[in-house]
Amino acid sequence: MQTAVKIIAFANQKGGVGKTTSAVTLAHALAARGKRALLVDLDPQGHVALALGLPRQPSLYRLVVESAPLSEVAVRARPNLEIIAGDKSTEQVKRAVTLSDFRESILADLLRRSPYDVVLLDLAPSLDVLHINGLTAADFVVIPTRLDALAIDGVQELLKTMAEVARRGHAFLGYAVLPTFFERTTRETFLQIQAVGKAFGRRVWPPIPQDTRVREAPALGKTLLEYHPDCTAMRGYPENGRRVGGYWQALDRLEEVLHA
């Protein structure tokens, strides 16, 4: 049976901003809340599988280039969560896609028919045909960013690319800027969050605090939910008796998007 799957891309043309961590954490959290989720690794580094304690695999290659059925290549990572893993063969996927007809919508065509509630795409920090494919497939784009000038430039560049994709007829539901590695004690962070808030308003989601556990979890092949669900990166900062920021709050915002 065909379902109304929502496709969420995690993208920023700057690397090291927390795209994979955000995609893996939120995919697992959605699955834990009962959503059937698929996480697709579009980055040749293949870190999605590693972050979930699985080996890198040429699943994306088999899906796109060898036309293997999605049900055959999707790997069960956690209850309710399956992944299309990537590895260096993803580079060959790019070449194959470049030579195809309708090359920009290959991924969209494959994923729209998938039997999931939500598909999350972890995009590589590059501007290539697979990146455009990911954006063309996406209903909504989450843009993780560090709060420094170079990363925010990456946000602006991505928005230009999205505007280009939109001009070619693709309708996005919207986008959100997700500040990561947030350090509330530094003046630079304060100035940057003010600037980002001024530019993007409500599209700026509550930030993900800087937390060493974010680095430790993938080394053990665990998600943050498994490694430390109460860590600052998950629960945010205490502020006036409430918690502000963190992945649990980002999850709430993401669920609002899914139910919109």
């Binding site: 969050i193 001024k198 989601w205 930030p207 502020e239 502000v244």
Partner: peptide, 17 residues
């Protein structure tokens, strides 16, 4: 534009900072 209002959590965090 309403979208330029801040998310309440972001607002509270920036005010505290």
């Amino acid at each position: 534009d309403r979208s330029l209002e801040l998310d309440p959590s972001v607002q509270s965090l920036t005010e505290a900072m």
